[in-house]
Amino acid sequence: MTPDSHPQTRELTVRECTDRAAWDALVTAHGGHPLQLWGWGELKAAHHWRTERLIVGDAGRPLGGAQVLYRALPWPLKSLAYLSRGPVGSPEDAAAVLDAVARHVRTTRGSVALVAEPDWDAGSPGEQGLASAGFARTDSTILIPRTLILDLTQSEDELMAAMSRTTRANVRKNLKGELEFRKIASDAELEQVLAIYRETAQRAGFGIHEDRYYRDIWRFLGEDSPIVAAFDGGEVVAFVWIARSAGTAFELYGGVNAAGQKARANYGVKWAAFTAMKADGCTRYDLNGLLNDGISDFKKQFAQHEDLLTGTWELPLSPLYPVYAKGMPLARRALQEGRKAAKAAVRQTKSAAGQARGVAGRVRRLVRR
């Protein structure tokens, strides 16, 4: 199906929302994900993206919407449009909402493609809606669809029972010990968290943003981004950083320093995060992605199941989409071979394929920032 096709016949309106309270009320009313909240869009707008919030209406009634993030691409591709755990709305209305959003983006922005990573289970009715709106599944994921989502409507005893035996023992030992578990409450405590995150990243070998990015999360999301920490004598030794909407808690980051490792505080602080979000009224806790690594192995100790979301879907919006799409596999290969090899490949050719490779490499690096 092309972007000009109509998955549904009803006439829908699309208007931009410029009021934070109204937008967040829409997200709340439709059970939206925290990455669709106004504050998350403000964060991304401060770090290389443009943000637009669109309300899709049906006969004057809000049907749903989408916080669209735009990333500038090299000429002539203009931009990539991205729905981070969007759209907002029921999976049953997905086709209508997505078609309306796609038309607006194509007409007003001229983006090369619209990428959506909804907060829906694999096999949900939303997948048919995505296909009806012209989207196709892609392996070029930004957020990992394989994850672990806890049902916070369960009792604490039920949540505890789902853990491995060793994990329960470590959590209970923390709870009986001298560590204090609570949300951080000051800029000074935030700086301790950032120091631990830098230490954790260096120890585990993963990349992180500059500190300003994390300070902006704290500033723009406010109460919608609580940080639950373990304190030892007033000093932070472990933390879990969360983005939270009315129903969903989404784990952003976590870390532990040497003192916290010795005390196994990363177990207790995880439990403290679960129970704090349950107390705040969240019904789901998404541990945000499972890979085949040590961090994922740690996450999997807290339940005996896994969840699979619908994944990444992409809709072409421009005649230049083939150039963009052709470069994606080449870009991934180039990134695997190393930055030097990718730059050398771009320098050695002036062909269309070479241009696609260069564009795509920049696209993937830009979108993942």
Rank of each mutant, 00 (worst) to 15 (best):
F302S: 05
Y213V: 11
R357A: 15
L221G: 03
R106C: 06
T153L: 10
K183I: 01
P62V: 04
Q154D: 01
D232T: 08
K270A: 15
A360R: 06
L43S: 03
P329W: 07
G311W: 07
Q348Y: 00
R168D: 02
E189L: 04
A59M: 05
E180N: 10
V97D: 00
N257Q: 07
A45P: 08
L148K: 02
L175D: 07
A136H: 09
K340H: 08
K343D: 12
Q8M: 04
A342F: 10
S84M: 11
P74Y: 11
A72W: 10
T13K: 09
I208S: 01
G281N: 10
A259R: 15
T166V: 07
S90M: 04
I142G: 00
A188E: 14
G89V: 01
F220T: 12
L63N: 02
T312L: 03
A246I: 05
L179D: 02
L159Y: 04
R357E: 13
R244H: 09
A95T: 02
K326Y: 14
A334T: 09
V97S: 00
H48G: 09
D139I: 12
A204I: 06
Q301G: 06
D139F: 09
G247V: 07
K278L: 11
R20V: 08
E16G: 13
T283I: 13
R339P: 05
G233A: 14
E210S: 11
V367E: 09
T167W: 00
K299M: 07
R137C: 08
D58V: 04
N292E: 15
R264G: 01
W23E: 02
P74A: 15
W120D: 00
E180Y: 04
R182K: 14
I149G: 06
G86W: 08
L83I: 06
L152M: 07
H48Y: 09
V228Q: 07
R71K: 14
L194R: 03
T283V: 15
V88R: 09
A272T: 05
R20Q: 15
